[in-house]
Computed example of a mutant assay.
Amino acid sequence: MIVDPWIWLGVFILLAYTIEAITGFGSIVIALSLGALLLPIPEMLPVLVPLNIFMSGYLAWRNRQHIQWSLLLKLILPLMLLGMLLGYGLRPWLDGQLLKGLFGLLVLWFAGRELLRLFRGHESAAHPGWLSRSLTLGAGVTHGLFASGGPLLVYALAGTTLDKSKLRATLISVWFGLNSSMTLLFLLDGSLLPSVPHILSYLPLLVIGVLLGEFLHHRLNEQRFRQVIYSLLVVTGVLLLGKAVV
């Protein structure tokens, strides 16, 4: 018996938010990469992006004292918003298979790079200013295409002097701002309202995932867990590329 792919997406959302609560990264990247094996990316984005607002908004408010407003408002948000609009504008020109292939490349690069970092155990060096700005703009483009600007933005900010709590709070604020803007775009293009039933049905899974992740956070070896998740993403990236080529 074939299970409705939207039920599978619910399973992936539960898994993704559990993983984010454990490790602090990637709810949309994980849910979208697994979901893209079964569903078109443009159909999932108006569901996954508004869902993320609830978590990122809560976390941004909770960690507001650590947000670096100067970095956020003067550098990251302007470039990311410009890139996001470019990526959003490109989506109608790219067919579903090409989108899956490009997303598969992004996931494969991100997961492969993180696996190498884990095994080698070294931190990334700081980038020159021009390269950081270019990568930040590119992160905005990937966010407009896939709501997944995190991999490139984290790479763009490699070597930053911000401590972990300040960087995390600032990044969370970026996702809240960008995903709120994308949700407004989905409302204007007519794709949000048909997705509301799915959004409402998945909301309890978000809560369960966060609670389950917090319960597991101190009971798992996080580095080993990250290795498993990144390995899963490598396999998923390869499968997405395979689906795009066939």
Rank of each mutant, 00 (worst) to 15 (best):
I2P: 15
V3H: 08
V11E: 04
L14F: 13
A16T: 05
Y17W: 12
E20Y: 08
A21Q: 05
A21K: 06
S27G: 08
A31P: 01
S33N: 09
A36W: 01
L38D: 08
L39F: 13
I41A: 02
P42I: 14
E43I: 02
L45M: 10
G57I: 07
R62F: 06
I67T: 09
K74Q: 15
P78V: 12
P78T: 09
W93I: 05
L94I: 13
G96S: 09
K100P: 00
L102M: 12
L105P: 00
E114W: 03
L115V: 07
R117S: 11
F119Q: 10
E123A: 03
A126Q: 11
A126T: 10
P128Q: 08
G140N: 07
G140W: 09
L145P: 01
V154Q: 09
V154T: 15
Y155S: 06
A158F: 06
G159V: 07
L162Y: 00
D163P: 02
S165R: 15
R168S: 03
R168T: 02
A169N: 05
T170P: 00
L184G: 01
D189L: 00
D189H: 03
L192S: 04
V196R: 09
P197Q: 04
L205Q: 12
G213Q: 02
H218F: 10
E222A: 14
R224P: 01
V228E: 05
V235L: 15
V235H: 14
T236E: 04
G237S: 09
L240G: 07
